[in-house]
Simulated assay, not measured.
Amino acid sequence: MSAHPQLRRRAEAAASRLPPLLARADNLANTVLLGEHGRRRSGLGDDFWQYRAVQPGDSYRLIDWRKSAKTDAQYVRQKEWQIAQSVTMWIDNAASMDYASRKDIAPKSDRARLLALAIAILTIRAGERVGLAGTSLPPKRGEGQIWRLSQALLDDSEQADYGSPEARAMIPNSRALFISDFMGDFESVEHALYKAADRGVRGVILQVLDPAEEAFPFSGRAIFESMKAQVMHETRKANDLRDQYVARLQDRKAALRKLARITGWQYDCHLTDAPVQSALLWIYRALERGR
């Protein structure tokens, strides 16, 4: 019985964060200038893109009878954004993502959720489908999906110390977005990306770090421990660890960059004290290039 009040408090806390997260993500999405030039691919716009042969399942109202009358075949007149693409996101909700080195900097988890939801808003409103990997939320279209995504992104009921990417049930030849600090087991990242690449999935890796994790500004006596206290290290000379730490971090970045190159993905690193708009624009353009 004692678990019910705790579960209720978690649900109420998540519910109270929903409207602010949605409002911030919507505002962020609206500030991104996507450009006025045609993207030269099929979609929901009004500009003509190309003709293609009629396929099973096409509605008769889509057939361009003037073009079809000139040949023995039937053709559909495609417009920009007509064919909905799918984007599957994996957003790390592990305890390590809750870290923030200063009170004036948001936790990594907050930045990751904000970017993910803003991308979802941009792509869904462009007629595409968005879903979450490893959940019961497959890629779908519509404003209702944005609400469902925001609810799922705030669910941190089962947190491990570090996250492992999830690539199950990804739609072949679709796109994906992974956002994490990627501080955990690297083999799990390799397994997920190789599995996705085998299905023709191309995507984006965004590593989100706190500025203290990048610069390692510690000195003197310090105790370092993971967010769930499963890993701990105490030292009297933290500054002596800086060079070794920075080298290992650079090795991890290089490994992620190489893995992205091998699998046809794209990698970037974003610090939580940097402008969020620049990260969102990079993700959007990277997903576009991954088509």
Rank of each mutant, 00 (worst) to 15 (best):
G220Q: 02
K253D: 10
D198R: 07
F218L: 05
D185M: 10
G144V: 03
G134F: 01
L154K: 03
L209I: 15
D185R: 13
E158R: 12
V231D: 14
F186G: 08
Q250I: 02
R221L: 01
V246S: 05
I124T: 07
M170T: 15
K228R: 14
R221T: 04
P165D: 15
I146H: 05
A238F: 08
K195D: 04
S226W: 06
R236K: 07
D251S: 07
L209H: 12
G200V: 10
F178S: 05
T235I: 13
R175L: 11
V231T: 10
Q250W: 02
D198P: 00
A222P: 00
A197P: 04
R175H: 10
G134Y: 01
A222G: 01
V231Y: 15
R248G: 07
F182P: 11
V246K: 11
I205R: 07
D251R: 13
D181A: 09
K253W: 07
D181C: 09
F186P: 11
T235N: 11
S180A: 07
G203S: 10
V208I: 15
R168A: 09
A222C: 12
L241H: 07
F218D: 01
L177K: 07
L177P: 05
D251T: 10
P165I: 14
G134I: 04
L132N: 01
S150K: 08
P165F: 11
D185W: 08
F218M: 04
I124F: 04
Q230E: 12
M232H: 03
S136F: 05
G163C: 13
L209R: 15
A160D: 08
D210P: 15
L137S: 04
S226D: 14
A126K: 06
E166Q: 13
A196R: 01
A176I: 13
L193P: 03
G220I: 01
F216A: 02
E213N: 09
V130D: 03
E213T: 11
S174C: 12
A160P: 03
L206P: 05
E158L: 13
G142N: 02
E213M: 11
S180E: 05
D243V: 09
L149I: 11
A247Q: 13
L241T: 12
D240E: 10
V208W: 14
A176K: 12
R175Y: 06
T235V: 15
E187Q: 15
L177H: 03
L193R: 06
Q145Y: 01
M232R: 12
F218I: 02
S136D: 15
A126T: 03
I205A: 11
S136T: 14
R148M: 06
L249Y: 02
G200F: 06
L153W: 04
E225I: 04
R125W: 01
S164C: 11
Q250N: 10
M227Y: 06
G134V: 04
T135A: 00
A196F: 03
D155T: 05
